[in-house]
C-alpha cells in the first residue's frame, strides 16, 4: 500500500497505524499520529486501518525553548 508518511511517498505492508509505527521502529507512546489531518487517538492505533493514498504525519517531542 502506498502512503505519504511525513511528506515522503512510501510503499508499506502495514494495515493499521500500529503496524506502521512498528515497521518504522517508532514507539507508539512517544509518537503522535495525524491521519489525513485528523489526530488519531493513541488508544485507537491498533484499530485504525490505513488505506491507499492516506497522508500520515508522525510527530514526536524534541528539545525546544
Amino acid at each position: 500500500m502506498r502512503l505519504t508518511v511525513n511528506g515522503e511517498l512510501r510503499e508499506v505492508p502495514a494495515r493499521t497505524v500500529l503496524d506502521l509505527l512498528q515497521e518504522l521502529g517508532l514507539e507508539p507512546k512517544r509518537t503522535v499520529v495525524e491521519k489525513n489531518a485528523v489526530i488519531v487517538d493513541r488508544a485507537a492505533y491498533r484499530d485504525t486501518t490505513l488505506a491507499e493514498g492516506d497522508v500520515l504525519e508522525l510527530v514526536g517531542i524534541v528539545g525546544g525553548g
Binding site: L26, I61, G64
Partner: peptide, 19 residues
C-alpha cells in the same frame, strides 16, 4: 520545562529521546 514538537526523522528514529 519546555519542549517542542517536530516530525519524526524516519532516517534515525527516536534514539536518545528527550522524554
Amino acid at each position: 520545562v519546555t519542549v517542542a514538537l517536530r516530525r519524526v526523522d524516519l532516517a534515525k528514529p527516536q534514539t536518545d529521546s528527550i522524554m
